[in-house]
Design a binder for these strands. Structure first.
Lengths: 186, 186, 186, 186
DNA sequence: GATGAATGAGACTTCATTCAT
DNA sequence: GATGAATGAAGTCTCATTCAT
């Protein structure tokens, strides 16, 4: 994925870094814009990332990887409910902290195979955690695998609608999630 | 609100109708686009609706009015919890049925006084229903007035993320809301 | 020129009054704008004044008439130079006081016969005053009739370029004219 | 100022050339219009000149530079009055020859730093020449630095009002300036 | 590979004028 | 006569993408 030549690799990093900043600022990603801020030619940015989505997904990748990792850890947790709830908390925290994540999560289609892979992996982990919790009688039966991601996106969205700024988002998101989890509990 | 002259009124209706279609299609509202589809001059559309928001809010108005009405009815309901839950159900059903509603609900600023008025009214009703349910000991204490709208938007959003088409939205939304309501219950 | 029906006459007056205000504000004359401010339909304004120029000239007419009158008076002045200089002073004062006047004066073509008539009359008076002053040996020979209006417009323009606001215009215009007059003196 | 790449430089020149023509024709500068006439995309023109003013000032730059140069020469002239008068003559000749110059001169705000610089320089030269002439007792005391530009613009404007075509402008402008200069003489 | 100039479709908006009511 | 809704050409400007250098 990462190109070979050293300068190309440096550019790649730089572009992703600039894109990260833009996403954090809430500025809509525009490849021209990224190029200007990175002090690079548009062509260079296009070579590395043919579309906005590709760049966005790349920006989101580390977060997705972190979530995937945390899911793995959760699987070794004794308490099935705690594992499940803890995982969802991480997911929601990620989303309200990182605007890139929400967009990538809500997108129906991915452009990078890596993104698809990670999303699948996270979903699989979520499903396992849900299954375990359900088997342990901790979660109600009417919740499906396919509901996890939408619900997390919903919580994140609710948080964005509620929040005036980026500061009060974390507590709000946690509060909303707690409520939802209480509703999920068997 | 509706203009006086017959032809103008016809155009007004027509524009709103076309906009309704576009919203339902998921096409982003564009005044030029509306004009083309309506077979009218751009200027005509601009005369009636100076901004996209004005048109969008107008499109959403009937739904908002319906919700406001249903809220009123809820206030005369005996069971405080049922009244509260029923109202939220109506709100969520409205949102997943009507894309305009989500956008208008999530917007921080309105452009039409009528919209502001209706939103206030609905919020007030929601607050009253929440207070009644809380007083009756049916709802947990940590839910605030300011959380109602965001949570409803969140449910709607979750539904959109989940749904492949517009048909399975209603049951999904109801299921999600039920879960949330269970979590809100004291 | 003024219409017959009483209400029409009232409208006519009102339109001209509103236009006067707009000109004084420095707002560019727009017939739609005039109509809105006057609380009349655009059609009504168009009926009275088919073009912006027609309205502008109408607005300028009283000033033109005043100048024409003052020119007449000047002709009966004993001192030929004083008469000439005094007349030019009035003209320049008019122009820097009234934006409509500059535009009408600088225009190559008039749309109202009345305007043409008044401009001719003023020009004729100016020519006579110039001739008298020249015959009296008070003015240099190289100044032509056709130079009077342009020079007055030039003085007015210089004043506009110089001036920061409308308040310091009169003294500036007078100063500039004095200089020019000194240069015209034989 | 001129871009690096050869094709870009060619376009830049071409655009300025086309703009020059339009200005000379008396056609109001419009970026779209320029693009069409130049056979270039609108975007190209906008890239080079983000606003009409930027293009206009660029078109006027060579003239401004010429004036600045001539002012320098004037400073080394023995006769203070001749130097002053000669400079003003050049300025006025420039203005009536080049419509861009009048607009740029009369504008309160510049958009290109180069324009501001040149205008300052020319003004400074004018001020010095005026001071020298005044010290030499050749010019009346009531003329201020800040009057030079407005008066030159006024002369140019008077010339435009007078002239039927672009051909008789130069002699007219000279005649008007002579008259004014006579009035400025101590 | 890198650059960034060029492109031009297309979105947005204004306004002079007409004409049905 | 009066009204003001309708028109749509024309101007402004942006931005994703391509391609010559």
């Amino acid at each position: 994925m990462t190109p070979q030549r050293k300068d190309a690799a440096r550019n790649w990093e730089h572009i992703v870094g600039v894109a990260r900043e833009l996403v954090d600022e809430g500025t809509p990603l525009q490849l021209n814009d990224v190029a200007r801020r990175a002090g690079l030619g548009v062509g260079t940015v296009y070579r590395h990332f043919p579309t906005t989505e590709a760049l966005l997904e790349t920006v989101a990748t580390p977060c997705l990887e972190a979530l995937a990792g945390q899911g793995e850890q959760g699987l070794s947790h004794d308490d099935a409910w705690e594992a499940f709830a803890g995982f969802l908390t991480k997911v929601v925290e990620g989303q309200v902290t990182d605007a890139a994540l929400v967009k990538v999560a809500a997108a129906q289609q991915d452009v990078l195979p890596r993104t698809t892979e990670l999303k699948k992996q996270i979903l699989a982990t979520g499903s396992q955690l849900l299954a375990r919790a359900r088997d342990a009688g901790a979660v109600r039966n009417d919740l499906d695998d396919a509901d996890i991601v939408p619900l997390m996106c919903g919580i994140a969205y609710a948080t964005y609608v509620h929040s005036s700024g980026p500061d009060d988002r974390l507590p709000t998101a946690r509060r909303y999630l707690e409520t939802l989890l209480r509703g999920l509990r068997a």
